[in-house]
């Protein structure tokens, strides 16, 4: 779990060191995604993910007249459901994800902006089930849009829409003999505040 405070500290300290016109954000939201696992033991089994409350920290700096470069660190708290034909659907294991993406963002029109990024995501170790040993570092590609509404001076409200793609796997699934990876697409919506240094 040392990775979490280290990443969060980096997310805050690095942009601060670079100072001028840095923009910081904190959003709370929810992220949903496609199924995590498909399996077959006499009948089909599927692990799906529910909406995961997600907290995102962001920091960015101008890289050109219109574009900014920055990072986003997101921590998600997810739940799963296990569906199996002929059996009642039950709650599956909970999970936590930690991701960090570097990206570029810029304006589309007025207060609406775009962002594309790439980075790493990790499923953190849990007590049992498919997340027991956590997961390897996964590459994620992300894209999305931000809608900004200035409130007072350097502070504003931001609404964020994020999509990302990953090739899902966990150490427990690998040691259980699962081959290849599962494509997982996620969509998240967040609402928060931003502060831009003058």
């Amino acid at each position: 779990m040392r990775i979490l405070p280290t990443t969060l500290a980096l997310a805050l300290v690095l942009p601060a060191a670079l100072a001028g016109q840095a923009r910081y954000g904190l959003t709370l939201g929810a992220t949903g995604g496609t199924r995590l696992v498909t399996d077959r033991i006499f009948q089909d089994i599927e692990i799906t993910q529910g909406l995961a409350p997600t907290v995102t920290l962001s920091a960015s700096l101008p890289v050109s007249e219109r574009e900014r470069g920055g990072i986003e660190v997101a921590l998600g708290f997810g739940k799963t459901r296990i569906k199996e034909s002929g059996f009642p659907t039950v709650d599956g294991p909970d999970f936590k994800t930690l991701s960090i993406t570097g990206g570029v963002q810029g304006p589309i029109i007025s207060t609406l902006g775009w962002r594309f990024g790439a980075g790493l995501l990790k499923y953190l170790p849990e007590k049992e089930g498919i997340f027991r040993s956590g997961g390897p570092l996964l590459l994620i590609l992300s894209g999305g849009a931000d809608y900004r509404l200035p409130i007072r001076g350097p502070v504003g409200v931001v609404a964020r829409l994020r999509y990302d793609y990953q090739r899902f796997n966990t150490d427990e699934l690998q040691s259980s003999g699962f081959g290849r990876t599962q494509d997982v697409h996620r969509l998240g919506l967040g609402l928060g505040i931003e502060y831009q240094r003058p």
Partner: peptide, 14 residues
């Protein structure tokens, strides 16, 4: 990039 990577489903163990 997403399209190039998006081609994989997990394979169940025997």
């Amino acid at each position: 990039l997403a399209a190039a990577l998006a081609c994989s489903d997990m394979v169940s163990p025997t």
